[in-house]
Amino acid sequence: MNKNYIILMGILILLAAGLLVLPLKNNSKQLDPEVLMWDIVQPTRYVSTDEVAKMIIEHDPLLMMVDVRSAEDFQLFSLTNAINFPLDSLALDDARSALTFNKRNLVFYSNDDLKSDQAWVIAKRLGLKNIYVLKGGLNRWIQTIIQPEAPAETASEAEFNLYAFRQGASQYFTGGSISIDKSPQAEVVVSRKKKAKAAEGGC
């Protein structure tokens, strides 16, 4: 038998055996801590409630809201088209791969920005991309979008514009009719209430 063959087979076995003795790669798919820290200190992960409201109204196909609160809270109230990934489910393989293969921009939100920020840190470590945090969370969502406060008389024009936008958004999200709505307003209100009940029930 040719010596070369023996060496060849030896190489193959060695290579395969080498796989077993490699040190465990626990970090390979996670973000390097240094990179993670670098991402943490950037404020770019925050998106404001106004930006999110605008994206939802415009049906931004890339937007996906991720609710990191508990499933019960999620059932009671959630933002339009949000999906629920409670904070403690993020470490599960299935949740991770479901989010990893999502090519959309994920915006995490919770009551305010603490839980969502924690979720963001964990998700970032697990290698998720295109993830953001809703600055101020639902609390600010209510304050700014649903119940916007009128700016002072002396405020700048930009502030008044923003207020006008928020008023419109408030109508949009609380069910008032806006331009895209085709049916008469009264009808909408009726149908909306019915739907609201259904949503509370099980959806």
Binding site: M1, M9, L12, I13, A16, A17, L19, L20, L22
Partner: peptide, 20 residues
């Protein structure tokens, strides 16, 4: 799967020898 690979290599080498 690393172990699977090793088993596969061993089977392959044995098969090479026997078939020879």
């Amino acid at each position: 799967n690393n172990l699977v690979t090793l088993i596969f290599v061993v089977i392959a080498v044995v098969a090479f020898y026997i078939t020879w």
